[in-house]
């Protein structure tokens, strides 16, 4: 059998598997299954980490989340909760990082000015930079940073990542009522902030 055939067979084997089966295989130490789980979740986890911690250590934090997941997988009793569990690890890594930075008196998730955002965008977007879009992005970023972390995480998970309130309650280990109330207050704070910046709803 040719080497290329073998790869195709392996890929087919994994593409037929459900997420629960991938989790079960990963639990038994199959790193290829874990690679697929990483590929499925890394964008969501990365985006959440970015909204919570900024871009400074983003790739390191992402790696930390998945490394903790790999080490902790044998303790995960129900494979179907993998998604909730990985977000919980993400939340723990984010809070640990912010605590560590606060100890060292660093500003967490510092707001980049418009100029640096334009530079950042132009470095990976070949398209012409849209000043208005960048301005709004800057406002949303500053609005999110205006919130305290417990309110910010609810907005990020619910309004940006589209995760249902019940699952957010499981991720953060708080009652659903608390999720609702945080969401209400966080939205009001954001609205006020954006109104002060000249945006009305």
């Amino acid at each position: 059998m040719l080497a290329s055939d073998r790869i195709a067979v392996t890929e087919n084997k994994y593409t037929l598997l459900t997420e629960s089966e991938l989790v079960a295989l990963s639990c038994n130490g199959d790193s290829e299954s874990f690679r697929l789980l990483y590929q499925n979740y890394q964008a969501k986890v990365r985006s959440t980490l970015y909204q919570l911690c900024g871009s400074a250590m983003l790739d390191d934090l992402l790696q930390e989340v998945f490394l903790r997941a790999w080490k902790g997988l044998p303790k995960l009793k129900q494979a179907e909760y993998f998604s909730t569990w990985i977000y919980r690890i993400c939340w723990n890594v984010a809070t640990d990082y912010r605590r560590k930075l606060a100890k060292n008196n660093h500003k967490v998730g510092a707001v980049p000015d418009l100029e640096s955002m334009m530079w950042e965008n132009s470095s990976y977007n070949s398209q012409e930079t849209d000043l208005m879009q960048l301005h709004y992005q800057d406002l949303v970023k500053r609005g999110l940073e205006h919130l305290n972390l417990s309110h910010r995480v609810v907005i990020v998970l619910h309004d940006l990542e589209d995760i249902p309130q019940k699952k957010i309650a499981q991720i953060l280990d708080i009652p659903v009522g608390t999720v609702k109330s945080r969401l209400y207050h966080a939205r009001n704070t954001l609205k006020k902030f954006l109104q002060q910046q000249g945006i009305t709803f």
């Binding site: 990483y38 790739d59 790696q63 955002m117 950042e120 940006l160 709803f201």
Partner: peptide
């Protein structure tokens, strides 16, 4: 309207380092 605005304009993370995986 607020949620729509957030979803349309939330800052996107910079591209990942291709070696992270």
């Amino acid at each position: 309207d607020l949620v729509n605005f957030l979803q349309q304009h939330h800052p996107t993370p910079p591209p990942a380092n291709p070696h992270v995986e």
